[in-house]
Design a protein around this nucleic acid. Structure first.
Lengths: 348, 348
DNA sequence: TTGAAAGCGCTAACAA
DNA sequence: TTGTTAGCGCTTTCAA
């Protein structure tokens, strides 16, 4: 639908016998305009149903005051909280947010970036799709000096900055915890190892094994899309091994839940026969029986930090010096990995 | 950041010794432009890194080709799927989507609508916030002939249309099912009864009771925000009644999960002592033990339908005749309500 | 098949 | 304190 007969500042100006520029100024409380005039203008504008045309304004100012967000999917508590954090900050600074989903596809991600680019966003907040292999599709935008801040799923490229947790450390801690519970043969279900979040967790896992004198067996590394199906398959693979694992560390909670189910279906006791740990502290981790050991990270805070960083870059082009912000995570130990029952250490 | 030195059609025109209008036409395959010229123009534009300025284009055309979406929250599988369905349709028709969250607050919802209005969206797809009591904040936009299509949480107002399921029927079916399982004293945990989704489910519940000769006891109706806490409180209320319920029907899965937990903590067996049923078929409903009886509805399809309806209204202002689209739902019966174990009827 | 020119609604430098 | 004016980049009518 074409926008129908809008009231413009010209209409308001005419009605008040003023010039359009005075109206324009009055509407934004320009200090040079008389208070009474401002009042008159605002009253008239309201009366006439005037609304600012952001398009014209942005065109004229060559500035849209919007920030683009590209996320893999909008269906997790994590993302909803991240975005809420971003909105909190950007709104404070007068920016709007345009949100788009890549649906975990690199191709769609490219399209999203391109659309946002054409919409003249001032900056981009991005968490990469599952299968994105390089960041060529950001080159265009970076060349135009439009800052990009990655969060969670970041890409290590010169000039980009990222907000994330220390996935290596988290993976290390989680694996060490499993080892402390007596696990010696720990399977790891991971995602695309190109994604920092998954490679970090994997490397942490491997390092923990090494530090505890356990050899890494690559039969125990399984990668998949971390959806329900890949959890089921991982569990079956574990069950079919002649030398079964006694612990499984999956890189997200969704797949961990399926792993537990599949194991239980075959009469395996979790954690006694096989301990299981996930990642993300999704709400479901508290619902599954036994409750899932996992890693929590402050989603809203990550959103806030990513947004503030971007805005800082936007305000003064100086502080682009820092390249990464690492947010604290927390190991949440629950029944799914607790073999040595020590009262008082279980978190819900 | 101000957009830096962009290439415009003027630049391209100059480089090719053509007029800006020819370039403008060439870029969009205008039939009057010579094929060779088109090729030349596109090649040059690409070479020079030209990108269309949507602001200028929209301003000139007085048309933004965008649709605004206002949802309570982005944190459910339901919403993610709805939005994916909307994107599918709107993209096919050349529209972009601007998504905003009301955070379940009427005040924020008003702000969202106003922002989208000022951004000159062509139409609005809205699911109402928890506490929205009237739709005055849509009047402005409706007066301007900008169509609004509600989905899921709709509002019954003249000229608005909505896409939803038959909540009454679903509530009726669910309650009837509980009754068929031997429940006679069924508690209902509901949300704000101003929201159609909750009032519909409640009325369906009440009708089912009546049709089975069970008197409605208003002690058994509890309303809350349907978050985790309200589930816990409902369960406690149930436990504290001298005449305890033997079934609980909650208006969403999140609270149902907490109800089950809280009941189990007190040694109540679900479903044998108290049967429980939820609503929405969120993934968590398959994880909880016992698996949760619930109602499924086709989220993606609802998104598609809402978007198509809006686009239909946009294309020809004729077919505004229909005021509601009712989408099929499905009762998903699982262990949490199954007392009479009949093999083969359990859905997972 | 191409070009010239006006104008979408707004802002801001400059003038008064 | 207010007004005049040019122009943001694009589309489109009219003319050539």
């Amino acid at each position: 639908m074409k926008t129908t007969s809008d009231v413009t500042i010209y209409d308001v100006a005419k009605a008040l016998n003023l010039s359009p520029s005075t109206v324009s100024r009055g509407l934004k409380d320009h200090p040079h305009i008389h208070t009474d005039t401002i009042k008159k203008i605002k009253a008239k504008a309201k009366e006439m149903g005037y609304r600012q045309n952001k398009l014209a304004s942005s065109l004229r100012k060559k500035s849209t005051e919007t920030i683009g967000v590209v996320v893999p999917r909008l269906n997790s508590y994590f993302m909803a909280a991240v975005i809420a954090g971003m909105e909190e900050i950007t709104n404070q600074h007068g920016y709007g947010l345009i949100i788009s989903q890549s649906q975990e596809s690199s191709r769609k991600e490219t399209a999203c970036v391109s659309t946002l680019f054409n919409s003249r966003v001032h900056g981009l907040l991005v968490s990469l799709a599952y299968d994105t292999e390089n960041v060529d599709h950001f080159n265009q935008i970076i060349r135009k000096n439009i800052p990009v801040v990655f969060f969670d799923r970041v890409f290590d490229c010169p000039g980009c900055m990222g907000v994330m947790i220390d996935n290596f450390k988290a993976g290390y801690e989680l694996t060490s915890h499993l080892i402390s519970q007596g696990c010696r043969r720990i399977m790891h279900l991971s995602g695309n190892l190109l994604r920092n979040v998954y490679s970090g967790r994997f490397e942490g896992y491997r390092q923990a094994l090494a530090d505890h004198g356990i050899a890494f067996d690559d039969e125990l590394l399984i990668t998949g899309d971390l959806g329900s199906q890949s959890g089921i398959e991982a569990a079956r693979a574990a069950l079919n091994m002649k030398n079964r694992p006694d612990g499984i560390f999956t890189a997200n909670d969704t797949s961990a839940v399926e792993v537990i189910y599949e194991l239980q279906k075959s009469g395996i006791r979790v954690p006694d026969d096989i301990a299981v740990a996930g990642f993300n502290n999704e709400p479901v981790s508290r619902v599954i029986q036994p409750c899932l050991t996992t890693v929590d990270y402050p989603a809203r805070e990550i959103g806030r930090l990513a947004a503030s960083s971007l805005i800082n870059i936007l305000k003064d082009k100086g502080s682009t010096s820092l390249s990464a912000i690492i947010v604290k995570h927390e190991l949440i130990i629950r029944e799914s990995s607790l073999r040595k029952k020590v009262p008082g250490t279980i978190k819900t």
